[in-house]
């Protein structure tokens, strides 16, 4: 009792792909011109064309937050936006926040609080936390937890993430106060 599941042939042949073109992106203070198909996501442009692999792909559907980058200081899922839409924007990735020899305060806090295990969601967590700091919204633990909940961590490093973000949030607010 088998049933056929037959595809519908294309009329006029298989549609051709859209041609590529140059796209100018300002990433971490540098201007890069990449040859991209218009449907290339910002995430794929960063990873596969600019070779900035610090930004991670975890779902490609805006569900996990691993691809979080800062666009003009605001955190976005780079898998949910096309590279061609960002020619006039300032894009900051994890590589733009600090280096192994010169970590940013958030990066150092993540190391100190062991706020990661496998490390794959970590760049997205840190970019998200940096966005949170830029937004100036998170003050209490509950707010940080809620506003960091768009970034999944399968290792379950959430306690360390909270502690790391809180340390930097507290420090920044006391610096402002002083």
């Amino acid at each position: 009792m088998s049933q056929p599941l037959t595809s519908t042939p294309y009329t006029g042949g298989v549609p051709a792909p859209v041609p590529t073109g140059p796209v100018r992106l300002h990433i971490n203070g540098e201007t890069r011109t990449l040859q991209l198909a218009p449907w290339t996501s910002l995430l794929d442009a960063l990873r596969e064309y600019a070779h900035l692999t610090g930004t991670k792909k975890g779902c490609d559907h805006g569900q996990c937050g691993a691809c979080t980058v800062l666009v003009n200081g605001l955190r976005i899922n780079s898998c949910l936006t096309l590279a061609v839409m960002h020619e006039d924007d300032d894009i900051t990735t994890i590589e733009g926040l600090g280096t192994p020899e010169n970590l940013s305060p958030l990066q150092q806090a993540f190391v100190d609080h062991d706020a990661f295990q496998c490390g794959y969601c970590t760049p997205g967590q840190i970019c998200s936390a940096q966005g949170l700091l830029n937004e100036g919204r998170a003050h209490s633990e509950a707010e940080i937890k809620e506003l960091m909940s768009g970034n999944l961590c399968r290792c379950g490093a959430y306690v360390g993430i909270l502690d790391a973000v809180k340390e930097v949030v507290d420090k920044e607010s006391s610096d402002v106060g002083a």
């Binding site: 990873r47 692999t53 610090g54 192994p100 970590l103 150092q108 062991d114 990661f116 490390g119």
Partner: peptide, 27 residues
């Protein structure tokens, strides 16, 4: 002690399997 690979992981410089940019790569 802190993880010795921590600085690499928090700076996006730890390379996972899809992050080796060998020349003439097909997908």
């Amino acid at each position: 002690p802190n993880r010795v690979d921590g600085p690499l992981k928090v700076s996006g410089t730890a390379h996972y399997s899809g992050e080796f940019n060998v020349p003439n790569l097909a997908y």
